[in-house]
């Protein structure tokens, strides 16, 4: 069916067909992603509601399923207020700076061994580079708002994001050491073999077990990196203000879209790096795209779970955790894995 469609389009567009085909593939990734973002907000409110013995949104549509649509329409209809003295151009570009990297990074994310938009060799590096641009949205929105509160909030969040990028990057360095590749597809394939996988227990051969400290560091770092609770200094409404105090309407909504799109992205990365991507956990079930989605959903649930469970961190404790705990742990484990790989007990051959 795909080939028939491909031929029909080739006849229709002629020389610009590759462009059209790639655009089509991009839409096929972005559209479900945005739908996922919308329903992640709904799911979050439902889950936190249940954990706090409430019902959560249940008024709009059956079981409240149309709530995200209603929220979106509400935000679209609201006015975008631009503060006086704000740097208008940068003020409006900043949310896009936050959102665009979260979408652009999906270009290299593999869904299974053939389904990937751009199968490049250095995809892990590409993802680290692209996601590091997201910090501009925060720092620029704080500055362009012409407000001291927004500015300080932007500085705080940006410093937090830069700090947690380092343990995240180091955790990924360990993963690429054991996989011997920077290609995300190869990283998944490298988790297929191992002693447990040969006995039909594939989930024990994935990277999370031999690299358990890195997995824990990565899981906590991605929560801090996406500015989520309990590290959500950006939106601690009751005690401090964040970088987006001056934003309203759709400009504000784009920051939220960026936050949730980033959550889905880092969950996908965690699934690919540490949880075996599309590989099946047990030998008697086939590998499938659905496993990847299931793993992403599980990591996303972890995000929501800890938001409902833990109180917010104090800012100096966040920085201490990043710099004085995670980075040393990463550096030690980097050395340990390096020696392990050189020793006769190397399990990643």
């Amino acid at each position: 069916m795909v080939e028939a469609l491909q031929q029909a389009l080739q006849g229709l567009f002629g020389p610009v067909f590759p462009l059209v085909w790639t655009l089509l593939k991009i839409v096929l990734i972005i559209a479900p992603l945005l739908l996922g973002v919308a329903y992640l907000t709904f799911w979050e409110r439902k889950i936190i509601g249940w954990m706090q013995v409430r019902i959560g949104p249940n008024r709009v549509g059956p079981w409240g399923l149309l709530q995200p649509i209603a929220d979106g329409v509400k935000l679209l209809l609201k006015e975008v207020v631009i503060p006086s003295g704000a740097n208008k151009g940068i003020f409006l570009i900043a949310p896009m700076f936050a959102f665009a990297p979260a979408l652009a990074a999906w270009a290299v994310v593999p869904f299974n061994d053939t389904l990937v938009l751009a199968d490049v060799n250095a995809s892990l590096l590409y993802i680290m580079a692209i996601t590091s641009i997201g910090v501009y949205g925060i720092i620029l929105s704080g500055w362009a708002s012409n407000s001291k509160y927004a500015f300080l909030g932007g500085m705080r969040s940006a410093a937090q994001m830069i700090s947690y990028e380092i343990p995240m990057g180091l955790a990924l360095v360990v993963v690429l050491m054991v996989s011997n590749s920077l290609n995300l597809g190869d990283i998944v394939e490298a988790q297929r073999k191992g002693m447990f996988a040969d006995n039909g227990l594939g989930f024990l051969s994935w990277n999370w077990l031999p690299l358990l400290p890195m997995f824990v560091v990565y899981l906590i770092s991605i929560v801090a990196e996406t500015n989520r609770a309990p590290f959500d200094m950006a939106e601690g409404e009751s005690e401090i203000v964040g970088f987006h105090v001056e934003y309203s309407g759709m400009a504000f909504a784009v920051f939220f879209l960026a936050e949730y799109a980033n959550m889905i992205l880092v969950s996908a990365l965690a699934s690919i790096m540490f949880l075996g991507g599309w590989l099946s956990p047990v030998g008697f079930l086939p590998d499938s795209l659905l496993w990847l989605f299931l793993k992403i959903a599980a990591v996303l649930f972890f995000f929501l779970w800890i938001r409902a469970t833990f109180p917010r961190y104090r800012y100096d404790q966040i920085m201490r955790l990043g710099w004085k705990v995670f980075i040393p742990v990463c550096l030690v484990w980097l050395t340990v894995v390096g020696c392990w790989m050189m020793s006769p007990w190397n399990i990643w051959k």
């Binding site: 590096l125 680290m128 580079a129 692209i130 590091s132 641009i133 910090v135 830069i162 990028e165």
Partner: peptide
Amino acid sequence: LVLIYVGA
């Protein structure tokens, strides 16, 4: 270049 100069 992007990772180090632009990102950090």
